[in-house]
């Protein structure tokens, strides 16, 4: 980050402030609003499904956008921008998991995470399907949830998922296959893979 003298920082106003923000952030406010409107909902869904915790998902969402704004990547297409955003989000999920070392996101019933996830009530339409998916996801490992969501909800190619998650491309296919089988079996009511 570029250091800004305190005196200058305190006296920024009007055009000067806008120019300073433009230099510090990756985009101006209007572009950010448009980008946020386009990406926030699917990103939150990814963070929620990967973490199983709506509060954590919201925190990580804000952190993701902050880091994105501060990273000031070179000008890029919308698709690349989205990839960049998801890479930051995935890194944040990984960092969080490392901090919570030894613990999986899946919490046994009655623990804090499980209770908090219940605050997103499935609505009537497709409610039972969502409850089943939520319950199935709780039986999956965090990494499995991430790659499944990136592959089948976000439609990322395997190479892109490998890049986003830091998993070797050669390892991704068997991992994804096993995760998909496991989820399908859980959803069908079969035993865990």
């Amino acid at each position: 980050m570029r250091a800004m003298p305190i005196s200058k920082c305190e006296t920024l106003d009007g055009v000067e402030k806008a120019q300073e923000i433009e230099r510090v952030f990756a985009m101006d406010e209007a572009s950010f609003r448009a980008f946020y409107a386009q990406t926030a909902r699917p990103l939150w869904a990814y963070l929620f499904r990967a973490s199983g915790d709506p509060t954590l998902a919201e925190d990580l969402l804000q952190e993701t956008y902050y880091r994105f704004l501060r990273a000031r990547p070179d000008p890029m297409s919308d698709a690349h921008r989205k990839n960049y955003l998801y890479r930051i989000a995935t890194n944040l999920l990984t960092d969080h998991r490392r901090r919570e070392r030894g613990k999986e996101f899946t919490n046994p019933p009655g623990e804090a995470g499980a209770d908090r996830s219940a605050t997103i009530e499935p609505r009537a339409e497709g409610g039972s399907e969502r409850t089943e998916l939520e319950s199935a996801f709780k039986q999956m490992k965090a990494r499995e949830r991430e790659i499944l969501w990136l592959a089948y909800a976000e439609g990322y190619k395997h190479e892109e998922i490998a890049e986003l998650t830091g998993i070797k491309a050669a390892s991704l296919r068997p991992l994804l296959f096993r995760a998909r089988r496991k989820l399908a079996e859980i959803l069908r009511g079969g035993s865990k893979a």
Partner: peptide, 27 residues
């Protein structure tokens, strides 16, 4: 799975407790 996730993503997106863009920008 893609169809199931898409429905789930749409439903979650509609219910997501998202902060306003203004708030995220301001913070």
């Amino acid at each position: 799975l893609a169809e199931l996730f898409e429905r789930d993503q749409r439903a979650l997106g509609a219910q997501a407790p998202l902060p306003e863009a203004d708030l995220v920008w301001w913070k």
